[in-house]
Design a protein around this nucleic acid. Structure first.
Lengths: 158, 158
DNA sequence: ATCATACATTTGTATATACAATTGTTGTAT
DNA sequence: ATACAACAATTGTATATACAAATGTATGAT
C-alpha cells in the first residue's frame, strides 16, 4: 500500500511538474512509467503463484511448441529480454517441476526442454487471470485508441 | 552485434506473428518492447561512462536540488522504480566521488546527500549526448504523433 | 520519564539483467 | 586425421529489482 501510494505520487509528479520537458524526453519517460505500471500489474497477479514474469514467459513459449522440445536459443529468440541467464531461469522452473531438460540427442551441444503436465496446469490456471489483468490495465482507452497506441509504438521503433 | 540481431528478430517476430493477439495483450507487449528498446538506447550512451541508468537518475535528482541536500526518501519519491536499494545506489556513487553523504543534523535518522562538483561535471558532459539519443529514439514519429502518444500513455494510466 | 509507535535508513535474500569468459560439441579446411 | 572456427550452453561477476527484517532515532501518549 505504501509502495502503491509512493508510486502514484511519482507518476503525478512526473506528469504535473515535468510536462514542460522536451517532447522526446517526455516520451521516453512516459513509455517507461507505463511499462513499469504494466509490469507491476502482471507481477501482482503472478505473485501468489510464486512465479516470476520471466519464468511465466518461458512456460508460455514452451506450451506454444505443443509437446515438441525447445532448446535455449529457441526460448531466447522469443523472449523480450536479452539472451543470458535463460539457463538459470530454466533451472528454477525445473526445481518447481514445471519443466524438464534433457541433452539433445541429435546435437549434444543443445538441450531439449519440455513443459510438464504440472506446468501446463499452472498456465491453464493463470491464463484467464492474466487476461483479466491485461484488460484492466488497458481499459482506460477505447478500442480505437488502443489501436492507435499500438500503431504509434510500432512505428516509433522503426 | 549478435544481440542486436537477435533483438531485431525478436521485435519482428512479435509484430508479424503475434499481431493477432488480443488487443490488451498486444498493447502490454508493445509498451514493454518499446520500453526495453529505449532503455537499451540510453544504456548504450551511458555505458562508456561507466554509470547505470539508475545512478544517472539519482545524479539528476540531486542536481535538481541546486545545492540543497536530499535524503533518501526525496530521491526515492522521484525515481521511476521502486523504493529499495537506493542506499546501495548512493554507495556506488560515493565510491565514484560523484556524491557525498552526511548524517542529517536536524534529524539523525536522515542522511543529507549532495552531488559533488565531479558529479555535476559528469552530468554536464552527458546531458547533450542523452538528449541526442532521446531524439534519435523518437524521430520515427512526427511531433504531432509524439504528442498523441504521450496523451494516450497518460490516459491509459488513468 | 517511560514505553509504544512511527520514521528513515540499512541489511539480507532471492531473482533478474548485462556482459564476459569458459566448457564442451560439431563442422570444416587442409 | 588434426587443427581451427563456430556453435550452444553454462558459469562468473556486477548491478538492479522486490520484498522482508533489522537497526537506530524521534515522537506522542500516559
Amino acid at each position: 500500500m505504501y509502495i502503491q501510494l509512493l508510486y502514484m505520487k511519482d507518476i503525478t509528479d512526473i506528469i504535473k511538474t515535468k510536462s514542460h520537458l522536451p517532447l522526446a524526453k517526455r516520451t521516453v519517460l512516459n513509455v517507461s512509467v507505463t511499462s513499469i505500471n504494466f509490469k507491476d500489474g502482471i507481477l501482482s497477479v503472478l505473485k501468489p503463484y510464486d512465479i516470476s514474469i520471466e519464468q511465466f514467459n518461458v512456460l508460455r513459449i514452451l506450451r506454444g511448441k505443443n509437446g515438441e522440445p525447445s532448446n535455449l536459443m529457441d526460448i531466447q529468440d522469443r523472449m523480450i529480454s536479452k539472451m543470458s541467464n535463460t539457463t538459470r531461469l530454466v533451472d528454477k522452473l525445473i526445481l518447481k517441476n514445471l519443466v524438464e531438460r534433457f541433452v539433445c540427442e541429435n546435437n549434444r551441444r543443445k538441450v531439449d526442454i519440455y513443459i510438464t503436465d504440472e506446468g501446463l496446469k499452472l498456465l491453464k490456471l493463470l491464463d484467464p487471470i492474466i487476461e483479466e489483468k491485461e484488460n484492466e490495465l488497458t481499459n482506460k482507452l477505447e478500442k480505437e485508441e488502443l489501436e492507435t497506441l499500438n500503431l504509434l509504438l510500432t512505428k516509433i521503433r522503426g
